[in-house]
Design a protein around this nucleic acid. Sequence first.
DNA 1: ATGAATACTAAACGAACGCTTTGAATTAAT
DNA 2: ATTAATTCAAAGCGTTCGTTTAGTATTCAT
Lengths: 188, 188
Amino acid sequence: MPRNKAYSEDMVLEKAMHVFWGKGYEATSLRLLEKEMGINQFSIYSSFTNKKNLFLESIRKYREYVSQNVYQSLLKEDAGLAELKAFLMEKRKNINLRGCLVVNTAAEVGARDQSIAKEVNLYYDFIRDMLKNVLLNAKKKGEISPDVDVEAYANFFLGVMQGLSIAAKTLDESQIKDFISIALMKVK
Amino acid sequence: MPRNKAYSEDMVLEKAMHVFWGKGYEATSLRLLEKEMGINQFSIYSSFTNKKNLFLESIRKYREYVSQNVYQSLLKEDAGLAELKAFLMEKRKNINLRGCLVVNTAAEVGARDQSIAKEVNLYYDFIRDMLKNVLLNAKKKGEISPDVDVEAYANFFLGVMQGLSIAAKTLDESQIKDFISIALMKVK
DNA sequence: ATGAATACTAAACGAACGCTTTGAATTAAT
DNA sequence: ATTAATTCAAAGCGTTCGTTTAGTATTCAT
């Protein structure tokens, strides 16, 4: 009986994610979302309840997005130190002025909103797990010493990536190169 | 002839800085500033022109504030590696949930507003210069090898501090300790 | 074809926004 | 005392905010 939706919720969600990524939570208005998502406010609310929930879903979508478009090489089952080095070295020249949606969110919203903070933590758990797997593989391959503390180094590179997201907005390419090169010297 | 101001512009500016530090630029309303600064909107505008200019002046004030309350040990003429280690190690337990005003600003506003971006850059020049001086002193004292690239390591620690500001909002103390400890390894 | 259910457009809601103006209160030199 | 300058509290400017409502269009089982 019902009429069919004229849009894909998944596709308009990805568009919303890009808007939040570029402008942040507060500065993104529903009028802009309406324009960029290509559907009107009624549809936004009927599909995503309200602005905050749309934002929360955008963060989840972002995790999916970066898995496929940013971290794909590090998420390969057997990715090791070589992949980590290649990733960071390539990242520093291909800097994204929008930084990282989750870092931006942590900075903007911080711990002020619990549901958002929770989503941020889930994202970092995901990145940390990925890094732990990479370091474990590096050990197996003999790329790093067998007595490297994997958990500690995962937290180190997580911190480096957080710094990199800010540095990408404020430093120039050669300064970022310094940062990455020295960070990579810490592990062997 | 004129009546005297009932408030100190410098003191209300510092109060404004703390509000922006805690809430960010967009989320801080003039009504809240009015309340926290203890003066009314007319006075805010007659002293600081408009919200954006008040924000710019708050960033400048922040530089002055951290010089006296955060980085004082590193700004001492002869501060070296020992001071840097002590600073980072102490910072990791005394984490500030507000993070760093300038990192928050970089994440929130990014390069969208030129006058704000310029103020952000000035702040990082200041931090980088401080770090360069620390590393130069460390060389003189023999705490690090004479062929350490001071410029590069200054950029490295700048990146670490940017990461630390985000980590302070998202990671727990032991994870931050991992980050800092490894960052400090092998500066020599 | 009809009826029930859902999707869509467009307009509008009250509240809050950044910002400006008004007018009375206060000051200090004349 | 008068006068000119300045401060301050309060109200109000037009705009935009997130959200909702009304009314119309579309779909599909009967």
